[in-house]
């Protein structure tokens, strides 16, 4: 008996492909929302906006210290009980955005905080306007400092999408579990699962390493 049956794998491929598109769709939508949310939160915390900074602080601590699975259960099964019903797909995006926003906020904030005031002062004394200084001096450095942690966050969030099956979204995990339960072709299902996650994540990981190397020039004198 051969280990893997190719005809089985071939017949499963379309199912996995659809599931991968769902994972990608929710994953990237959630990550884009998380970047926006994280950036807003980082700015609020960095510039110490009244009251808002306390709310943002509580939000960040709450979502950084609980698992996505628990957050999703609360959003998807808990909230409808008080009249707030969210369909599964937007709920997945929302959950990922809230979790990711908290992580991204910390990443962006530490990037901003790593730039010493002397950078701004020197830029101003060279005759740059404030806007120019932020655009040409502060942001390039803050961005290159944040890149490794940012990429790590993106990979982490894409991996976290694997819990979406718990709120009955037909993602890769759901498909694999379903097919194993139906036909017991465990090995084929698991192989396809691994292959499809590699398709999703390896390019991101490779791009991350490339960016990290490319942006290291900003680490002056180290």
């Amino acid at each position: 008996m051969e280990l893997l049956r190719w005809d089985v794998i071939q017949s499963y491929l379309p199912l996995y492909r659809d599931a991968m598109f769902l994972t990608l769709r929710i994953g990237w939508a959630g990550i884009f929302a998380a970047v926006g949310l994280g950036f807003a939160c980082a700015l609020i915390r960095h510039f110490k906006v009244l009251i808002l900074q306390n709310i943002v602080g509580i939000y960040i601590e709450l979502f950084r210290n609980t698992p996505l699975l628990v957050q999703l259960f609360f959003l998807y099964f808990g909230l409808p009980r008080i009249g707030l019903e969210i369909p599964a797909e937007p709920c997945g995006v929302l959950g990922l955005a809230l979790l990711g926003g908290a992580y991204m906020a910390e990443t962006f904030r530490s990037g901003l905080e790593a730039i010493e005031p002397i950078q701004m002062e020197s830029a101003l004394s060279l005759g740059m306007t404030r806007q120019q200084a932020v655009l040409h001096v502060i942001l390039p450095q803050a961005v290159s400092i944040s890149v490794p942690a940012f990429v790590a966050n993106v990979i982490f969030l894409l991996k976290e999408t694997s819990v979406f099956s718990a709120i009955s979204l037909m993602d890769l995990m759901f498909t694999a579990k379903d097919l194993i339960g139906l036909y017991y072709k465990t090995l084929e299902c698991l192989t396809l699962l691994v292959v499809f996650y590699l398709i999703i994540l390896l390019p991101v990981s490779a791009l991350g390493s490339f960016l990290e190397r490319r942006l290291r020039y900003a680490g002056f004198g180290d």
């Binding site: 991996k159 819990v163 698991l190 699962l193 994540l201 390896l202």
Partner: peptide, 11 residues
Amino acid sequence: RVMPQMVLLFI
């Protein structure tokens, strides 16, 4: 780094 822990659990 790239494999979700859930996939490893299933394996």
